[in-house]
Structures are given as structure tokens and as C-alpha cells.
Simulated scan of single mutants.
Amino acid sequence: MSGAVTSVFGIEPGDHAYLRYAGDDERRLLRAAHVTAAAGRGERAVFVDAGAWGGHDPRALPGGGQVFVLTPGEAGFAGGRLDVPRLMRVLDAQADEAARLGLRGLRVCVDLDEVLAVTPETAPRGDGGGPGRCPLAVLRGRSRPPAVICHGDRARLPEAILPALAERHPLTLDAATALTRHPLLCVRPVRDPAGLCLEGEIDDSNLGLLARALETAPLDGRDLRLYVRRLRFADVGAVRLLAHAADAMPDGHRLVLHAPGPVIKAVLRHYGWDRRLVLEEGDRG
């Protein structure tokens, strides 16, 4: 979505983020947040992670194939270096499986301190062979890039390399704040043309608020206009609600989404809901 990314839930396909956490508790919370975000966006969460998953086999995780865990070796990491072609092949297979399951893409999460050999002189290793950008940056050049999220435990990584790791990622967030979803959904009426402006994030926690707002929204003639440029996140359930609201409009009336972000557009197209409402571009909202 548009706007500054401040939380795990705002990270989108094509983004490359570095999340700094402290200790196992924050690590577990980050894992859960990524699973929740992937579920909301209709994606598969792929973890490259050698750590324990609550004492059970991560392959047996629930979720209908929406969560998958790779060991560093399976993903192409060995001896602190990355085999990029191997990683590409692995992720292509993951993307194919995600598509077979009806999912729209991948959310790739990698714990850097478990897979890279880092020192103050080499952090991070650019293409697996020397200092430079994070090796996961190569994934942003794919035709359908995943969301790429690198993790690092501040307590385990050498303090001298932490600034370099942050500098070589386009987005750096601290887990303590990135796990918080804020602000919540804000709905306000607008005039000329009449409609509603939606700001913040929409998920299961505030679908009821959106549903009630749609029931009483002002109309612009025969159109119900929603200005959504300032939405940072909307899960599949939220977009489904908008599609159903469009179906419920009386004959001759339309539901118009003004300036929808790429995630909303992708969900609408993936489920065939884009034919039920009207999408308009522009800066209003």
C-alpha cells in the first residue's frame, strides 16, 4: 500500500526489509506476525530458518500449505555464502506450489545471523563473495518479486556490523514497534464528490466498522465512492467485503474505488472481483 511502512503488516511484494529483534520471544512474535500478514494477503510465508519451531516439525505446521520452512542448506546457504541460482530454483518451486494452492505469491523471511558469515569487514556479503548489498536483494529483480524480510538478532550479531546491515536494506524496522498495527482503520466522509475516505489498515478486527460505514455511506448520485489511497493494508477478507458490497448495489449503481494500491488491485484480479466494481486512479484522498 501507499504510505510509510511502519509495521510487519505493511510490507508488500517487492519490498526488502530488515527487522531487528532481541531474543527468542520477539523472534516467535515476528514469525506469528508474518504468518498472519501472509494469510491476510493470500500469500505463502516461506521461512529460511534453522531455529526451533515450538518443539514440532515445521513441515507439519497448519495452514493448508500457506507456511513452509526451509533449512538454510535447502535454500542455498552454506558456509556463510549464498548459492543464488539454487535459491532462485527453490523459490520458483515455492511460487509454483503457492499458485497451485490458489495463493498469490511469496513472503520470504530469512534470519541473517543463522545463514551468513558476518564480520565487520564483510557485512553483509553482497552476492555471497564479498561485502556489498544484502544477498537477498537479487530477489527484487524478479518479474514477480516476493516480499523479502531479513531478520537479525541484536543480541547475537556483532555490534560492529549492525549499522552496515541497516544501511544495506531499503527499509529497517525494530521488532518492538514493527509488531504493532497502528493506526487502526479511520473512516471519514468526504464531499464533492461524496464518499468515504479510508485510512490505516483493514483486517478481521475492524471489518465490522467498515461494513457499518458502507451501509450509511453518502452517495455521489448513483455511485458509492471510496477513497483508498491512504490504506496501508487490506487483507483478503476486507477486499471480499468490498466486492460483496458492489454486488449488493441496486441496479444502475456502482461502487467506485479511487486510487487503490497494488495489493487491493492484485487481490481483486486474482479472485475475479475486479469485474464487480470500478477502479479509478488519481491523487484524491
Rank of each mutant, 00 (worst) to 15 (best):
M1W: 04
A4E: 11
T6E: 09
F9V: 01
I11G: 06
H16S: 00
Y18E: 03
Y18N: 06
G23I: 08
D25N: 15
R31N: 08
A33V: 07
T36Q: 12
A39L: 13
R41I: 10
R44G: 02
V46T: 04
F47Y: 01
V48I: 10
A50Y: 04
G51P: 12
W53G: 04
H56S: 05
D57S: 12
A60C: 10
L61D: 05
G63C: 06
G65V: 07
G65E: 03
V67M: 12
V69K: 09
P72M: 13
G73H: 00
E74L: 15
E74C: 12
G76P: 14
D83Y: 06
P85K: 13
D92P: 05
E97R: 14
A99Q: 13
R100C: 14
L101R: 14
G102S: 09
L103D: 06
V108P: 00
L112V: 12
L112N: 04
L112I: 05
D113Y: 03
E114C: 11
E114R: 11
V115S: 07
L116H: 06
P124A: 09
P124G: 00
G126F: 08
R133M: 01
V138D: 01
S143G: 15
A147G: 14
V148N: 04
I149L: 07
H151L: 15
A155I: 14
R156H: 03
I161M: 10
P163L: 00
A164Q: 12
H169F: 09
L171R: 04
L173G: 04
A175R: 01
T177H: 07
T177K: 06
R181Q: 14
C186W: 08
V190E: 09
D192F: 11
P193V: 05
E199C: 15
I202Q: 01
D204S: 13
S205V: 06
G208R: 14
R212N: 12
T216G: 15
A217M: 10
L219F: 12
R225F: 05
Y227S: 03
R232A: 00
D235C: 11
G237E: 00
V239A: 05
L242P: 07
L242D: 07
H244I: 12
A245H: 11
D247V: 13
D247E: 15
A248T: 15
P250I: 10
D251G: 14
G261I: 00
P262Y: 15
H270Y: 08
H270S: 09
G272H: 03
G272F: 06
G272C: 08
W273D: 14
W273Y: 14
D274P: 04
L277H: 03
E281Q: 12
D283N: 15
R284I: 11
R284Q: 05
